[in-house]
């Protein structure tokens, strides 16, 4: 386990922001921190980054308690982020890089590398206020990763990016993960969770309601819904083994969604259909993270 929080509790006046929150983030993975607005995600991140202290509980990194110097090994892109408007892009990036512990020379070298990678070298002497929001986001992303930290925390990293740039950032995150970095991603964009995250924790009303591997979780929430395509005009197989949810004609095909009963065996089900129809495809439909999210929060 690279990062662990144990029974973290935080109280703000009358509002309990976190209640006994424990999460485990394995090394070299992307970890999704999910939850509705106001659930306590940002508070948890602020506790991990030592911006606020927990009332109770502890944060461990590499199996030992987290200390003040460990913040230099974190790259944090907050949801509420900005830049000094009057500063030049280069100066600003240099300043943030040096605040994160880089020497002047190292900061400059790393900066050049990233500016080249994002193809924004010609922005170096522009003032921040002249940049579009997306451009500023890129500068912020660079300043988050410039000091080569082992733990990266991104809070809503895709907001403000167009699809092309969002994709660049996604790929950068995966590349960083493949380099062995651990990434915590907090977002409401469930598609990106499915695409990027290995594990997630879902926080609702200050508590962890769901925690674990993305595939396992989707599996756990599955409704035993199967989708298959047959060559037929209609599907009229009557059985106690399943109920038909929908039928849709597509050219010479028919797309059918059924929900099977728990006891029914999968191969028996396929056989039953195969006896009567010509099957083109057959697959189980796992719930999307979006559905899991809504389901888990409702409970």
């Amino acid at each position: 386990m690279y990062l662990e929080t144990q029974n973290v509790t935080k109280q703000y006046a009358a509002h309990l922001a976190l209640n006994n929150v424990s999460i485990q983030v394995p090394k070299g993975t992307v970890f999704g921190l999910l939850g509705p607005n106001g659930a306590g995600k940002t508070t948890l991140i602020r506790i991990i980054t030592r911006i606020t202290a927990p009332d109770n509980g502890e944060v461990f990194i590499n199996g030992r308690p987290f200390t003040g110097n460990d913040v230099y090994n974190i790259g944090y892109l907050p949801e509420e982020r900005g830049l000094y408007k009057k500063m030049k892009v280069g100066e600003q990036a240099m300043y943030l890089a040096r605040l994160r512990g880089l020497t002047k020379e190292n900061a400059h070298r790393e900066l050049m590398k990233w500016f080249q990678r994002f193809d924004i070298l010609d922005w170096y002497n522009r003032k921040v206020e002249e940049l579009s929001k997306g451009m500023q986001q890129k500068v912020q992303f660079i300043s988050t990763v410039i000091h080569n930290p082992d733990l990266l925390i991104f809070d809503e990293p895709f907001s403000g990016f167009d699809p092309v740039n969002a994709d660049i950032i996604k790929n950068e995150m995966l590349r960083l993960r493949d380099e062995g970095k651990t990434v915590i991603l907090s977002t409401h964009n469930m598609e990106s969770v499915e695409a990027l995250c290995d594990n997630i924790a879902l926080i609702n009303k200050a508590q962890v309601v769901l925690h674990g591997n993305v595939y396992d979780i989707r599996n756990r929430y599955k409704q035993h819904i199967f989708r298959f395509r047959i060559i037929a005009d209609d599907f009229d197989l009557q059985s106690d083994a399943f109920t038909v949810l929908s039928k849709e004609k597509y050219h010479e095909y028919l797309d059918v969604r059924i929900q099977k009963r728990m006891e029914t065996d999968n191969s028996a089900l396929v056989k039953m259909i195969l006896d009567r129809y010509n099957i083109i495809s057959f697959e189980e439909e796992l719930p999307t993270m979006n559905e899991v999210f809504i389901e888990a929060v409702k409970q």
Partner: peptide, 14 residues
């Protein structure tokens, strides 16, 4: 207001 403060204090003590 420019929301830079959280970026700043993520790398130093407020």
């Amino acid at each position: 207001r420019s929301r830079i403060v959280e970026v700043m204090i993520s790398s130093m003590k407020p």
